[in-house]
Amino acid sequence: MEFNDNKAIYIQIAEHICEHIMLGTWKAEEKLPSVRELAVQLEVNPNTVMRTYDLLQQKNIIANKRGVGLFVTKESLQHVQTYRKSIFLEEELPQLFRNIYLLDISLEELKTRYQGFIDENFK
């Protein structure tokens, strides 16, 4: 995973985990890698992964089963979508709208390109 400088690393890792849940790579009630395992895999400090896991627990996306480890919750998909949707609508969409306006991109062109993206990547 490559990190960028515009967001905290623990948030980027949380988004990475959320994406895996939305894509079905990590399913409900599936065990997550330990803090150390994920830290080694992503080449980050274990404290960073711990911070990520804390955030995801607060959002009810993952849960700790004492003595066993961390697991994806049953309702994780709904919680991930709510969490990611709020971030998108509050932070990313205004910038996207700004670019659409400045570049004079029509809604029809957006619709056509969006449909092409869906057809190419998800069908």
Results as ranks from 00 to 15, higher is better:
K7P: 03
Q81S: 09
M50P: 00
S106G: 10
V35A: 10
L70T: 03
S76T: 04
P46K: 04
E75K: 11
F97M: 15
Y53K: 02
K27H: 10
N45T: 03
T25L: 12
K65L: 08
E75T: 02
Q41F: 14
G69V: 02
R84H: 02
Y53L: 02
D54H: 05
V40G: 02
K31V: 01
I21G: 03
E91C: 03
D104I: 01
K27M: 12
K59G: 00
N64Q: 06
E2W: 11
K59A: 08
V44D: 11
F117T: 04
F117S: 12
V68G: 00
K111L: 11
K27C: 04
I62W: 02
E19W: 07
D119I: 02
Q41M: 15
N121E: 12
S34F: 03
K59H: 04
G67K: 07
A14W: 09
Q81A: 05
F122S: 11
R113Y: 11
V80S: 03
L96N: 04
I13E: 07
I13L: 10
Q12D: 08
R113D: 12
T48K: 13
F122Q: 03
D104W: 09
Y101P: 00
F88Q: 00
C18G: 10
N99C: 08
N4L: 09
D54I: 02
I17Y: 13
D104P: 05
L55I: 00
L110W: 12
N47R: 15
E30P: 04
I118W: 06
I105G: 14
S76M: 07
L56F: 00
I118S: 05
K7Y: 15
K111Q: 12
L93D: 03
V80Y: 09
I100P: 07
A63S: 09
V68T: 07
V44R: 15
I9S: 09
S86R: 12
L93V: 11
K74L: 07
K74T: 11
K74A: 05
A39I: 05
T112D: 05
V44S: 12
Y83R: 03
Y101H: 13
V44C: 14
Q115H: 13
D5I: 01
E108F: 09
I62G: 10
E30Y: 13
W26C: 07
I100K: 04
K123V: 04
E43V: 10
K59N: 01
T82C: 02
I62T: 09
L96K: 08
L89P: 01
P94F: 07
H79T: 06
E108Q: 12
E92S: 13
L32D: 14
T82N: 14
P94N: 11
R51M: 14
G69I: 00
T82A: 14
N45C: 11
M22W: 08
I118N: 02
I21P: 04
E120H: 13
Q58F: 02
R98C: 09
M50D: 07
L55K: 03
P46S: 08
D5E: 10
D54P: 00
L89I: 10
T82Q: 14
S86V: 00
Q57K: 04
P46A: 08
F3A: 06
C18H: 06
V35M: 09
D54V: 06
L56N: 06
P94E: 12
V40L: 13
T112W: 08
I11F: 05
Q58H: 12
